[in-house]
Structures are given as structure tokens and as C-alpha cells.
Amino acid sequence: MELFSELAEKVENGQHKEVMTLVEKGIAENISVSEMLNKGLVAGMNSIGIKFRNNEVFVPEVLMAARAMKAGLAILKPVLLREKVASKGKIVLGTVKGDLHDIGKNIVCYMLQGAGFDVIDVGIDVPKETFIDAAKAEGAQIIALSSLLTTTMVYMQEVMNALHASDLNDTVKVIVGGAPVTQAYANEIGAHGYAADASTAVDVVRGLLGR
């Protein structure tokens, strides 16, 4: 349908006002909200995510697209809830204790939301207890940890230890990312997944949740 591709294109171009208009038009015309979500908003975010990963676009363009996606999602959400469109999964996301960086974490948040996941953003400088408590309270399947500093990435190990000591050990998986973090480090601390960038984070989450 032309509306879906137009929605995807407007999301990708970061045209938030146009996205809002299109979503409202779709709802007024009784077009499937889950299709508007998946074939429109999610498709647009996927496309910008691939371009971001390929270095074809940069942070400003992703943030513009994310704003457009969120504007559309804000209108769709009440209808989605009413029609009980199932979430694809829940993720608790935050930057670990001692680290105040949020740009990368926010982009991962937008990408995951854009892909249809529920994200509980627990913010920056987050202690291990908060990650575990939020995952318990929300029934999350994944905890996603971000760190921009070599000195704070070691805290990811503490979160892993806290998870092992909790009763979530068998049910919740952990993914890690951020500038100094590598696949080797993820393996070393026993994380379930590593994402080199925000777009990969979506693929890793999909892989871990099998959807």
C-alpha cells in the first residue's frame, strides 16, 4: 500500500509532522494499525538503521528519523493497545554505573522501539540493582548495557554477577555495547550478545528472542 511506503519514507527522512499527518489519515481510513507500525514506521527505522550501519547517514539523521517515528508511534499507541497488538519483547536499557553518556544509549533505544520492542530506559549511571529490579518488575526478556569508557565497562561484569545471583538467571539475557566494548569482552564476561552499533543491536535482540 502506498501509505505504508510513504510513511516509511517520511520516517527515514525525519519528517515528523508529515508522519503524524499520515498516521492520522490512516487511522481515519481504518487502515490496519499494526501494518502501519510494521510496514511504515518500523520499515523506515530499519532502513535508516541499515544506512547508519553502512556509514551512509550519521547521528543527526538517525535522531531526526527517531523523532518522526516516535511522533507517529505516540498517535498509534492508544489504538495498538486497544487492539491488543502484542509487543515483540521487553528490554531494560541503560548506561552502567559511573558512566554519564547517553547519546549512544538513546539511539539504541530509538532503534529498538522503532523495531517494535518495548524499551524501559533506566537512564545513565545505573547501578546493577536497578537493572535487575526493572527487569523483574517489567518482565523483561533482555537487559541491554551501554558504556563509553574503558573504566566503566568493567561494571558490566558486576551486572552479570548480579544477574547470576538473582532468580532471573535463566530467563533474562544480557547484551552489551559502546565504544570500548568488543565481542571478546562480551565473551569474557559471559554476555549473551554484543552489538557494535545501534542497528546491530536490533538484529542481536531479534536473534536472542527468535523473532
Binding site: G14, V59, P60, L63, M64, R67, D102, I103, N106
Partner: peptide
């Protein structure tokens, strides 16, 4: 702050 990225547009 990171609003600079959106303000660039």
C-alpha cells in the same frame, strides 16, 4: 546538549 543534532536541521 544533544539537541544540537536536531537543531542542525
Amino acid at each position: 546538549g544533544s539537541d544540537i543534532f536536531l537543531d542542525m536541521y
